[in-house]
Lab assay of single mutants.
Amino acid sequence: GSVVKEKKEKALIEVRPYVEYYNELKALVSKISSSVNDLEEAIVVLREEEKKASEPFKTDIRILLDFLES
């Protein structure tokens, strides 16, 4: 629970300088966080969101995924 939350919060802070739609990304992460149990599940849902998103938000999600998977 809290470790996953920390990882996601740290990821958002780390990617902030590189993303165009930070507030939207943060809102998406919050929405996903409330419906998943762990980081792996969150990553799966983020990948689905990435497929549906259009640029440049798609790239923002990709940047976040790269950080979460590192």
Rank of each mutant, 00 (worst) to 15 (best):
K31H: 07
L64P: 00
V4K: 04
T59R: 14
S70D: 10
D38F: 07
I13H: 08
E9A: 05
V44G: 10
I32N: 03
V36I: 06
V45D: 05
D60K: 03
K26V: 15
R16M: 13
K31T: 08
R16Y: 14
D38R: 08
F57W: 10
V15G: 02
L28I: 03
E14T: 07
E48I: 14
G1I: 11
A42W: 13
R47K: 10
L64M: 05
L39D: 12
L68R: 01
E6G: 11
L39C: 15
V45H: 10
S34M: 12
S54T: 09
S70I: 09
F67M: 05
E41L: 05
P56Y: 04
P17Q: 08
E9L: 13
K5H: 13
L25I: 03
D60F: 15
E20I: 15
P56S: 04
E20Q: 15
L46D: 00
E48N: 12
V29C: 12
S54I: 09
V19R: 01
D60S: 07
S70V: 10
F57M: 02
A42N: 02
V3S: 13
A42M: 15
V29G: 01
V36R: 03
L39W: 13
L28G: 00
R47P: 00
E24D: 06
V19F: 04
L65N: 02
A27M: 08
R62K: 08
E69D: 10
R16K: 12
N37K: 08
K52S: 07
D66S: 14
I13W: 07
K8A: 15
S34T: 09
E9Q: 06
E20H: 15
Y18N: 11
S54C: 09
Y21F: 11
L46I: 05
E50C: 13
K52N: 09
A27G: 04
S70W: 13
K26N: 06
E9I: 11
T59Y: 13
R16C: 14
L64H: 00
S34Q: 12
E50S: 10
S35P: 03
V45C: 12
N37M: 08
S35Q: 12
K7Q: 12
E55V: 12
A27K: 05
V29I: 06
K7P: 07
K58I: 02
S2P: 05
V44W: 15
S35C: 05
L28F: 04
V29T: 03
V44C: 11
P56W: 09
E48G: 11
E49L: 03
Y21C: 14
E20W: 14
K31L: 08
K52R: 10
K51A: 11
E6A: 10
I63F: 07
L28M: 05
S34N: 10
Y21E: 04
Y18E: 09
R16E: 14
F67N: 07
S54P: 09
I32S: 03
E55Y: 13
V3G: 12
S54F: 11
A42R: 02
Y18K: 13
S70H: 11
L12K: 01
